[in-house]
Simulated assay, not measured.
Amino acid sequence: METKIWAVNEIEQAAKAIKRGSLVAFPTETVYGLGADAFNEQAVGKVYAAKGRPSDNPLIVHVADAEQVEKYAMVDARAKKVMDAFWPGPLTIILPVVRGAISHTVTGGLETVASRMPDNDVTRTLIRMADTPIVGPSANTSGKPSPTTAQHVYHDLHGKIAGILDDGATTIGVESTVIDLSVAQPAVLRPGKITPEQLEAVLGEPVDSEVHQVAASEAPKAPGMKYRHYAPDKDVYMVAREDWTQAIIWAQGQLAPVGLMLPNDLIVEHQLAGMNFVWSLGNDDAEAAAKLFAGLRYFDDRDDIATILVAELAHTSANAAYNNRLGKSSSGQKFNVTDFM
């Protein structure tokens, strides 16, 4: 299969592909998603096959407006509050499914369904033109770093999908916050740009922010809770800010180059500007999140790099998504001066 890359002005071709049951990667403000008609079970099954995704890992349904959600989910007053406050935007909402309204292939066999309205005009137009909500897991090989450009998608999925709608690089760079509103106490199942504190302010009630994993025997309600995610083939280690001097000394003593991903102020401080084994995470924490997956992909594709050291950010609510994805990318491995020197 030839995988096409469509410009924004070719969106009609992408919509036609969705309508005929093909797979189309699409842009959002977070990462690129892999789209299929949410009501076409055969097309949804192709998404799992193209990604190599476990069948009990539910998919997020993307909509162009809140009214589309009512076709397949039970939308209550709490859901309407957060939709009004945060949609379109990087928030996924889990609600009870309307029985028989959408396939268990989408929900991973659960009686709940996840939905979001992306803050991307191109994709909302695509959904309207296709005249259907579309499922949209990240458009990458399952378990690998998520794609933030059309070129990342092509690298992983060319020959497996009909096409990619290219709207440039994503702006946020890490996946949406996932909130479970199918339970008595709202719970954040995956951290993202929207924080628990922001959700609490809108809902007027406490939000559990510690439910990010499930046991091996359980079915996850949201992506990222059970299986290995966001991980390059190379060894990745998190580096605390105070450990960068020793980490750089260690890296410079290795026979093979070590990939270093760190913010600009540390690049300047350690005189690393212009080095081809350095990936800038930018000037602030938001920029670091936007550049994280691209940097991991850059070093993972280099044959001369065996190890990647990545800056950990301050442990604040706003940085929870970045540190969560980095923790999964590294399998929790941290650079420890004693162990490495």
Score class of each variant (00 low, 15 high):
residue 1 M to T: 11
residue 2 E to Y: 12
residue 3 T to L: 10
residue 6 W to Y: 08
residue 8 V to Q: 10
residue 11 I to G: 00
residue 15 A to K: 04
residue 15 A to S: 11
residue 16 K to G: 12
residue 19 K to R: 14
residue 20 R to T: 14
residue 23 L to W: 03
residue 28 T to W: 05
residue 29 E to D: 07
residue 29 E to G: 03
residue 32 Y to G: 01
residue 33 G to W: 00
residue 35 G to L: 01
residue 36 A to P: 11
residue 40 N to A: 13
residue 42 Q to T: 13
residue 43 A to E: 02
residue 44 V to R: 00
residue 46 K to D: 12
residue 48 Y to Q: 04
residue 49 A to K: 14
residue 49 A to V: 15
residue 49 A to M: 13
residue 52 G to L: 08
residue 52 G to I: 07
residue 52 G to P: 08
residue 57 N to P: 04
residue 58 P to S: 03
residue 58 P to E: 03
residue 59 L to I: 06
residue 61 V to K: 01
residue 64 A to K: 01
residue 65 D to F: 10
residue 65 D to Q: 13
residue 68 Q to G: 11
residue 70 E to Q: 14
residue 72 Y to K: 06
residue 74 M to T: 09
residue 77 A to I: 12
residue 90 P to E: 03
residue 97 V to N: 04
residue 102 I to G: 01
residue 102 I to T: 01
residue 109 G to F: 12
residue 110 L to T: 10
residue 110 L to V: 12
residue 112 T to K: 02
residue 118 P to E: 10
residue 119 D to T: 04
residue 120 N to G: 04
residue 122 V to C: 09
residue 124 R to T: 05
residue 124 R to H: 00
residue 124 R to C: 06
residue 129 M to G: 06
residue 132 T to N: 04
residue 135 V to Q: 05
residue 137 P to Y: 06
residue 137 P to M: 05
residue 141 T to G: 10
residue 146 S to P: 09
residue 148 T to M: 02
residue 152 H to N: 13
residue 154 Y to K: 13
residue 155 H to R: 15
residue 156 D to F: 09
residue 157 L to N: 05
residue 157 L to V: 08
residue 159 G to S: 06
residue 160 K to D: 09
residue 164 I to F: 00
residue 165 L to H: 06
residue 167 D to S: 10
residue 169 A to Y: 10
residue 173 G to E: 03
residue 176 S to M: 00
residue 176 S to P: 03
residue 177 T to R: 02
residue 178 V to R: 03
residue 189 L to N: 06
residue 190 R to P: 02
residue 192 G to N: 06
residue 201 A to Q: 14
residue 204 G to Q: 11
residue 204 G to A: 09
residue 207 V to I: 05
residue 207 V to P: 02
residue 209 S to H: 09
residue 209 S to I: 10
residue 210 E to W: 13
residue 215 A to D: 15
residue 215 A to K: 15
residue 215 A to S: 15
residue 215 A to Q: 15
residue 224 G to A: 01
residue 225 M to E: 05
residue 229 H to A: 13
residue 230 Y to T: 03
residue 231 A to H: 03
residue 234 K to S: 08
residue 235 D to H: 14
residue 237 Y to N: 01
residue 237 Y to E: 04
residue 239 V to T: 09
residue 244 W to I: 00
residue 246 Q to W: 11
residue 253 G to W: 09
residue 257 P to K: 06
residue 257 P to S: 07
residue 259 G to I: 04
residue 265 D to K: 08
residue 266 L to I: 13
residue 269 E to N: 14
residue 270 H to I: 07
residue 271 Q to A: 15
residue 279 W to R: 04
residue 284 D to P: 07
residue 284 D to C: 08
residue 290 A to F: 03
residue 292 L to T: 09
residue 292 L to I: 08
residue 295 G to F: 10
residue 295 G to A: 12
residue 299 F to D: 05
residue 299 F to E: 08
residue 301 D to A: 15
residue 303 D to Y: 06
residue 307 T to M: 14
residue 309 L to Y: 10
residue 310 V to G: 05
residue 314 A to M: 15
residue 321 A to C: 07
residue 324 N to G: 09
residue 326 L to F: 11
residue 327 G to R: 02
residue 329 S to C: 10
residue 331 S to I: 12
residue 331 S to R: 13
